[in-house]
């Protein structure tokens, strides 16, 4: 079963959205560790949108879709903010002394480091960011057959 959430882009919505995402992943049997990393990925994406995108709108401006993809989870986040391709963002200078380091750029670096695949497109006035991450606990056709396979969720 997939997961869909629509937000207006107000920062106050983020905790609830992250909680809902974790609850969905938990209901699908994703491990605690992977749930925590997906929470982190989603927080970084959403914070980037609300900090650098358009102001909150009355109508939905952010849409989050989650689904199982192959042997892992795929999360797609669409927003109507200014075009921003995190895949093209320069990596942060991790060798710089801590006192001159900024948090900016670290979020994108975390996205790159914690996902197996990250893809960006700008379509119909919307940023579309797709994150994929393999998850040993996630259901999917590439997993080895388990005796209790009947309990697995169909794609």
């Amino acid at each position: 079963m997939g997961f869909t959430l629509r937000l207006t882009g107000h920062p106050d919505e983020i905790p609830g959205a992250l909680h809902a995402l974790e609850a969905w992943l938990g209901s699908e049997g994703v491990s605690d560790e992977d749930r925590g990393e997906w929470r982190l990925l989603a927080e970084e994406v959403l914070m980037n949108i609300v900090q650098h995108g358009s102001p909150p709108q009355a109508a939905e401006s952010i849409r989050i879709d989650g689904r199982f993809h192959g042997d892992g989870v795929e999360l797609r986040v669409e927003d109507r903010g200014r075009p921003f391709d995190p895949c093209a963002a320069p990596p942060p200078d991790l060798s710089a002394p801590l006192e001159v380091r900024r948090a900016g750029g670290l979020g994108v670096h975390l996205l790159r480091s914690l996902t197996d695949e990250m893809a960006y497109a700008y379509r119909d006035g919307r940023n579309v960011l797709t994150l994929r991450k393999r998850s040993p606990a996630a259901p999917g056709p590439q997993r080895p057959a388990q005796p209790e396979a009947g309990a697995e969720h169909p794609l």
């Binding site: 982190l40 970084e44 914070m47 801590l98 006192e99 380091r101 900024r102 948090a103 975390l110």
Partner: peptide
């Protein structure tokens, strides 16, 4: 502490910077 994000890292960076100063 079970979880930290880049916003949390910013706070730790700030504390480290203050201590160095």
């Amino acid at each position: 502490l079970a979880y930290i994000s880049s916003m949390g890292l910013r706070s730790l960076f700030a504390a480290q910077k203050t201590m160095r100063e």
